[in-house]
Each structure stands twice: as C-alpha cells, then as structure tokens.
C-alpha cells in the first residue's frame, strides 16, 4: 500500500451519525472481485437513482468538495459490515483521511491496511471542524508531526498507537513484516499451543 505522511485539502462534512458500510458501498457491488477502481461505487445509492442518473446535492458531488481528500463525519462512521470495499471505494475516490468521533472497529482496521487515516476526535471538536469544513477551510494532516491543522491553526494532535502510525507512514505490507520479524515467535507459540491444546491441531500433521 501507499504510505501516508501528509495531506492538505478541503474537507467534506457529513454530520450524520452511524454512516454504515452498506451506505458507503452497497452490497450488490461486492460481487466485483477487484479492489481497485471502486471509487465510482462510493455512496452509490445516495449519489445515483436506480436508473443510474445522478441525484442532486450529495456532498462529494458538490463543488468544491468533490476533490476533498478529507471527510469529516458523525460518530460511528463505517459501522456494520466488515466489507473492505468501503475503504477501497473511499481511497479509490481520492479520500485519504476520515475524521469522526468514533468508527466502526472493523472499518478502522481495514483503513489501516490501505493507507486511509482515521482520526477519532471528541464530538464537539468534530462539530467545530465540520462547520469549518463547510466554510471551505483548508485541512492539513501531518502524520509525522501528528497534528491536524484547519486553516493553519493546530486544532488537534493525532493520537494513534505507534504501531499503527508507523504502518501508515511506511506503507509496509503487514504480512511481510510479520513473516520476517515474528515468524520465529509465531512458530514458537504454535509449538507451545499445540502442547497445551492438542485438540486444536488434530487436523494437521
């Protein structure tokens, strides 16, 4: 994946709570087996009528917010289904960071694997920067410095577990890292685990 260091852009504000991953990426498009090119399906049923003609007024289709790389949203963003397509559709559309009071936990985990930064901030802070976003404020996110600036004013520090921050900054493939750095630890654990709970290994040789 691509790493995340900084981004600077307008932000689109969706104040609604509990925007679920079915809304972000409708289930019928899960039949596609790609992970790239899913941007057009982002919030599909909010942006398009059944016949494919565009609906009016969805924030990400309104200028100047159609180019926003930052999304500010209500609490519980990404709740519901585990579909990683919700993240792939956001990144495919050009969104690089979502700010909300809280996130669906599986969504947040998926975001990490794809260089999409999620920032959880208190509800009143999100409401304030959401209002600024509506006025067209510039958001700057610097993951090296761990700061979020809105119109050049630092409004929050980004508080991420260090492991997640490093993963985002470096864009490492997590499987590579685990196999290289923890391969022995995994094997060691597995041997002890097999001794302690042999019934979990009955199917293996």
């Amino acid at each position: 994946m691509t790493g995340f260091t900084t981004t600077e852009s307008l932000a689109a504000y969706m104040p609604e709570q509990n925007i679920d991953t079915d809304a972000i990426y409708p289930a019928r498009y899960l039949l596609l087996m790609e992970r790239e090119g899913l941007g057009p399906y982002l919030f599909h049923d909010r942006r398009f009528h059944g016949d494919g003609t565009p609906k009016e007024g969805f924030i990400l289709d309104l200028e100047p917010f159609s180019k926003a790389q930052v999304l500010v949203a209500g609490a519980g963003f990404g709740c519901g289904s585990s579909r990683e397509q919700a993240v792939w559709a956001l990144t495919g559309f050009g969104v690089r960071c979502v700010i909300a009071p809280s996130f669906g936990e599986i969504f947040a985990g998926n975001a990490l694997k794809n260089g999409l930064l999620t920032i959880a901030l208190p509800e009143e802070v999100v409401a304030r920067i959401g209002a600024a976003a509506q006025r067209g404020a510039r958001f700057r996110i610097d993951l090296e410095e761990c700061i979020l600036c809105v119109d050049n004013e630092i409004v929050a520090t980004i508080d991420l577990p260090e492991g997640q921050r490093m993963a985002l900054l470096n864009g490492w493939d997590e499987t590579d890292v685990l196999l290289q750095e923890e391969g022995d630890a995994i094997s060691g654990f597995e041997t002890r685990h097999r001794m302690a709970q042999p019934w979990l290994f009955q199917g293996s040789t």
Partner: peptide
C-alpha cells in the same frame, strides 16, 4: 470480524 486484507494476513501467518 475482519476485512479481506486481514483474511489474507491470517491465512499466511496464523496471526
């Protein structure tokens, strides 16, 4: 529950 990337990680590493 996990996402598709994590399914791949789990299958490859068991962790």
């Amino acid at each position: 529950g996990i996402g598709a990337s994590e399914c791949g990680i789990v299958m490859a590493t068991q962790a």
